[in-house]
Design a protein around this nucleic acid. Structure first.
Ligand SMILES: [Mn+2]
Ligand SMILES: [Mn+2]
Ligand SMILES: [Mn+2]
Ligand SMILES: [Mn+2]
Lengths: 249, 249
DNA sequence: ACAAATATTTAGGCATACCTAAAATTATAT
DNA sequence: ATATAATTTTAGGTATGCCTAAATATTTGT
């Protein structure tokens, strides 16, 4: 069961905005939505009514706005599409972040979830594959800089040389679990060191062996830890993160 | 000067359909457009009126339909976006062609030309780069086959092995110019062996050193030759194609 | 407590983009 | 040449999704 909820691009953007604003400020006001989407307050009221009628949010005139479980599910999927697309544009194609974000927010409505999954796999493969996908991406970035569409054997050869001379990796503390990573660091999931319900829970969240996981934020107390896997944002307790065995490249 | 013509996704699809139908049958009938876009004939009439009012096509009730130069320019750009996106989905991400085509036709309306250009460069880089982008894509294809999202060290190692053992290239006739290629074959443009106006014309068409060019069709007499560069379709005379020096990988 | 400021909704409109059914035009076949 | 068929247009209607202005409700400062 994937979706088939058949929302318009416009309504998807409302859901996305509501979801993001709740994440940021723990509450949504119609005015914030209007501002973010650059529409009038009146338009927001109309959209809210529609989304409530379709059971994606709980809402009555002048009342507080919350997402229903179904609404939240769909909102998360849109956010995921947005982020995967933006990451691909920025990290692989080296598109300017502002432009990438704008394009991602238009493309997100036209791309099916299966293709987003495929894109995630491709981006992960670039990081995982021993053929050196990451080097290739760096080579591409360099290639872009040496001007226009000319034949630039030079920069391509440069890429080749740099790739061959193995860069000496700086000494690093051995990091074994997701709880050892600092914000911004990434690892590849090797194993889920848990059994039963917890194991199932972690796997259901998308923490599967082979996936690349990135730590986004760590709360002052080291708990909870916010991570991103396959374009999904997750919040994990420290003792959960410790159960996720990873490998740092 | 790029565009800024601000056409809706719907009108872009009408232009695209008109352009493609003209290419296929040398004439457009409202009925064909309706069939291709799965809308009623009445809807087509409305769209045609709008496009004519906006000067993208020449049209009067019951009269023949032709694209204006501006309409043709925009139509070509949409077709280019469609094809680049589809190629990326099919050739890099290994998405099923049918699904890729459908997605491409939705995404084409939300992606700016500069990002399409970037995507073209990336796809070309995968073919050109000595780090072995093509091998990486093959590795990815293999990786996809070994099931779900599991950690598949096995297939990744397989990719590595296959990449290292240099496959013996079968004897091949040395191909120097674009005119030597058979349909389906590709080459990298090395040089334009022409001067003055012809040189300029070929370069303006997008035949630039470093670009990957693919032969699509060759007319029975060997003239003209249809090729694709950077997502654009071109039709070249045989003596023009001879001036384009290429290298086969 | 209550006036002023702020937020939200309602009312009334407009543009796009689709539809079906009927009318008008053009093509085709005897 | 004309009846019949096919195509295209017009007429009239629906649903989205946006807007501004006015009305209503809520919040805030004193
Ligand atoms: Mn969006
Ligand atoms: Mn978005
Ligand atoms: Mn389209
Ligand atoms: Mn298309």
């Amino acid at each position: 069961m994937t979706d088939a909820s058949q929302l318009s691009a416009s309504l998807e953007d409302y859901l996305e905005a509501i979801y993001n604003i709740i994440r940021e400020k723990n509450a949504v006001r119609a005015k914030d939505i209007a501002k973010r989407l650059k529409v009038s307050n009146a338009s927001v009221t109309g959209a809210l009514r529609m989304l409530a009628k379709r059971k994606f949010l709980n809402y009555a005139p002048y009342d507080v706005i919350t997402l229903t479980p179904e609404g939240e599910r769909i909102a998360r999927e849109i956010v995921r599409k947005h982020e995967v697309l933006r990451d691909f544009l920025v990290k692989v194609l080296s598109v300017d972040p502002g432009q990438a974000d704008e394009a991602a927010c238009r493309l997100e409505h036209g791309i099916p979830a299966e293709i987003v999954d495929r894109l995630v796999k491709f981006i992960e493969f670039l990081e995982i594959c021993p053929l050196g996908g990451q080097k290739l991406v760096e080579g591409f970035r360099r290639h872009l800089k040496c001007g226009a569409s000319d034949n630039c054997d030079m920069c391509i050869k440069l890429a080749q040389e740099l790739a061959s001379k193995e860069v000496s990796v700086p000494e690093k503390v051995k990091k074994n679990s997701l709880a050892d990573l600092a914000p911004g660091e990434k690892g590849i999931i090797k194993k889920i060191r848990a059994k039963g319900t917890l194991r199932k829970r972690l796997m259901d969240l998308g923490l599967l062996p082979g996936s690349v996981v990135e730590v986004e934020r760590v709360a002052p107390a080291g708990d909870p830890i916010e991570v991103k896997v396959r374009g999904y944002h997750l919040s994990l307790r420290n003792d959960e993160a410790k159960k996720v065995e990873i490998e740092v490249r």
